[in-house]
Amino acid sequence: MLIATENLSVSYNGRTVLRDATIEAKPGEILALVGPSGCGKSSFLAAINRLTEIIPGASVRGRIRFDGRELETVFPSSVDLRRHVGMIFQQPNPFAMSIRRNLELPLREHGIRDSGELRRIAESALRDVGLWDEVSDRLEQSALELSGGQQQRLCIARALALKPQVLLMDEPCSSLDPLSAERVEQLIDSMRGQYTVLIVTHNLAQARRLSDQVAVFWTQDGVGRIVEQGETEAVFNAPSNPIVASYLSGRKG
């Protein structure tokens, strides 16, 4: 298992939003997290790369293992952790700087100073997300001038440039138009085998197309929990939980 959680709970100012979430993801696998809004999926992702540290009032309990060892011991520093566990947000969030600077700033921050190497990594990251041909002649332009879909792919490139082992994606397609969403989905599909991807999505069809494993989150007594998980096809074809069955068939949630 590359990444595994055990009884992970998240609360904000004492109010628990997610309780006892236990999942496992193998290297190179895509794990989809599905379920209605507000059942703790985003909090789950934020707990994994310790983004909860910068959310006021957030606290996390439970264990996270990375490659079989405690995450705390593998990556005592959050900065280091987030280099190895990248994250993509629902709204594309490039910095208000040039495209090149968006890619190079995090790399510099992680100690890569050589301009030739910076250039090379930036180019290969842009190629990986299929953005190179679209932007290679305007790398000095502001990233905010790109379309929403391009911005999101830039954000993915920015994360990939750091060579992470895990990518957390919080509804990466939901703010994009259908065509851009499809491109981003293809991109995620192409990352199978290279990166372990944990993707939150509301689009059940997308979850079914993309993922190897799926975990269904549900709110019970005001607290988010994982109510079913397993191989994607198995869960979609024969869910054991009746709520999940009606949710996956579109009758609930």
Partner: peptide, 8 residues
């Protein structure tokens, strides 16, 4: 990464 970590 340890050297960078110290510097950071």
């Amino acid at each position: 990464s340890r050297v960078i970590g110290v510097r950071h």
